[in-house]
Amino acid sequence: MHALIQAIILGILTGGVYALMASGQTLIFGIMKVVNLAQGAFVVLGAYLTYTLFVQFGMDPFASVLITTPLMFLVGVGLQWALIRPLHSDDVAQLSLLVTFALALGVEGILSFAYSTTLTNIQPKYANFSWTVVGYQVNLVRFCAFALSLVVLAVLYLVLKRTKFGRAVRATVQNPMSAQLLGVNAQRVSALGFGLGAATAASAGSVFGMLNAFNPGSHYDLISRLLTVVVLGGLGSIGGSVVAALVMGVASSVVSAMASPIWSDFTFFIVLLLVLLLRPRGLFGARTRGAL
């Protein structure tokens, strides 16, 4: 029982970070109907940026979020402008998938060239510090990572709910054509939305680098988990992706603790298959949305 509760705590803390990554991905899908296969690569890129700032300049990984996030926002806007926007012709769904896949490969290639493919980890001094709360271990870094994820998600929520840009985004997600008729600049919303998605990936990457050993190839692992999360949550639903991320975090952590870490990967795949069999639009997906 103790082990189970410990695993659940761990799962919730990890799930928070996945929620951050997945919210960006589902946001991108909601706005552009693009499944961003490069989201995992963005996370790894964010992790390597943080790693460099930490090793070269001794910057605290949590503080470096303030640099990596805006930076990756700009990178995301640029990539959308250069690679996704020109595609908007006849076959966007297929082409954008392949383009983002290529993007992921390209990022992997550059990172392997710059950092080599050996596993690295960001290890600040406090990395192994943990509290004991009524008999359960709570790791400081994991807790702060979870808190940071909540903060970024809250900021994202406020941006979407309270700003004019956010209203334009939500309108585009609901009905792109009506939104355009009402004067929403679809190109701009798409570019900024993609930037936001990349930014959430980068902020998640900073903490991901402290929690896991990573190398440029880690994005394959990440993207397979993220895809499960966003499909489970319902493509395009941010709230759904947060719930799904927490569910999957707990599920994989419990399986990992009770069975073996190998099978924790399989929980993702099995859940994905079950979702597709039983409820293909996910927990919170709208029926008409996207290509489902």
Partner: peptide, 11 residues
């Protein structure tokens, strides 16, 4: 359809 099919197959 297309998007999700690609997701499933990549999985």
């Amino acid at each position: 359809r297309a998007d999700v099919f690609a997701i499933v197959t990549i999985t």
